[in-house]
């Protein structure tokens, strides 16, 4: 069983002319868990991953696998499996030959392509030209390329994009299982909701800089002080709460109370003898925290 090594970014920086795509990214991704690499489109995710994989030269800083840059790995495909967003295959070549080309270049066993196709459920389409593949099948083929050398580290750029619900469930289970085996799994996405059931840890970047790093649950700040409440006698309810010194605004489905706790509002209504039809503390939620972190352009 191949074991994962940590992915280490140290002051990684890339500038294109005067435009800074990634600036001073320093973060470590540990094995044994699925890490989400999040940020809006154009935040620098793909550039970061391409630098990690030796495809783009950093302006400064380093990106390594346990201290070794990609180009210096003894057997790259057996150490790191990567799939990048761009469809990078010749449309006239079959899936099996596409994988065979790269397995041969990397010196992997002859059985590797078929084994990888089997893992992603493409065995039945192995001899079909890739040009006729659907987006979901291309994603699976990209993943098959990543799995070709049975690597301890997986780096996947937007792997869920284009998959159908069944495919999403399948890749979620696969990635969780890979992490549980001790591998390092890094997946990027511009949608938190897309990966929130898959990842343990999140790294969020915006404008090429790290804005948040931590467990997924750390995103749910839950410091919301808003209470949503409703009653048949809505106007009287609002009046009573306002009289108790709270700031109140009307919603379509009830009354929103600022800086309040649900228990206090419930007691006020009870003492005034108003039967409530709804009472809840509003939660900010992961997605909202995410959008706050990455700024306006995250609301795509």
């Amino acid at each position: 069983m191949p074991t994962g090594v940590p992915i280490e970014f140290a002051s990684l920086t890339k500038t294109f002319g005067s435009v800074s795509a990634v600036s001073g990214l320093t973060v470590t991704i540990e094995p044994g868990q699925v890490t989400g690499f999040l940020g809006p489109n154009g935040a620098g995710k793909t550039t970061t991953l391409r630098m990690l994989l030796g495809l783009v030269r950093p302006t400064s800083g380093t990106a390594t696998f346990g201290g070794t840059p990609y180009a210096k790995l003894a057997s790259p495909l057996s150490t790191v499996g990567a799939s990048l967003e761009a469809a990078s295959f010749h449309p006239g070549r079959s899936a099996r030959n596409h994988l065979a080309v790269h397995a041969q270049a990397a010196g992997l066993p002859k059985t590797a392509p078929d084994a990888a196709l089997e893992k992603v459920g493409l065995s039945g389409y192995a001899n079909r030209r890739v040009g006729g593949y659907s987006l979901g099948m291309r994603q699976r083929l990209g993943l098959a390329f990543a799995l070709l050398g049975d690597p301890g580290v997986l780096v996947l750029d937007e792997p869920i994009n284009g998959l159908d619900p069944e495919g999403i469930k399948w890749i979620r289970l696969l990635l969780r299982a890979m992490a549980a085996e001790g591998r390092t799994v890094l997946i990027s996405s511009h949608l938190l909701s897309e990966v929130q059931q898959t990842v343990d840890d999140v790294i969020i970047i915006s404008h090429g800089a790290l804005v948040h790093r931590g467990e997924l649950s750390s995103l749910d700040t839950s410091d919301s002080k808003q209470v949503q409440v409703n009653a048949d006698e809505r106007d009287r309810l609002a009046e009573v709460i306002r009289a108790a010194g709270y700031e109140v605004s009307n919603l379509r489905s009830g009354v929103l109370v600022e800086n309040a706790a649900a228990a206090d509002i419930g007691r006020i209504a009870f003492e005034a003898g108003i039967p409530l039809t709804a009472l809840s503390q509003k939660r900010t939620g992961l997605e909202e925290s995410f959008l706050t972190l990455v700024g306006e352009e995250g609301a795509l």
């Binding site: 495809l55 990609y70 990567a82 990078s88 295959f89 010749h90 270049a105 990397a106």
Partner: peptide, 25 residues
């Protein structure tokens, strides 16, 4: 040119990061 056109240099350079070897071959 087809390697550039179909972006197949990405997997090629992942399988063999020494680019000179790829071109030499």
């Amino acid at each position: 040119t087809s390697e550039f056109r179909y972006q197949s240099l990405t997997p090629a350079f992942l399988a063999q990061p020494r680019r000179g070897v790829v071109l030499g071959a």
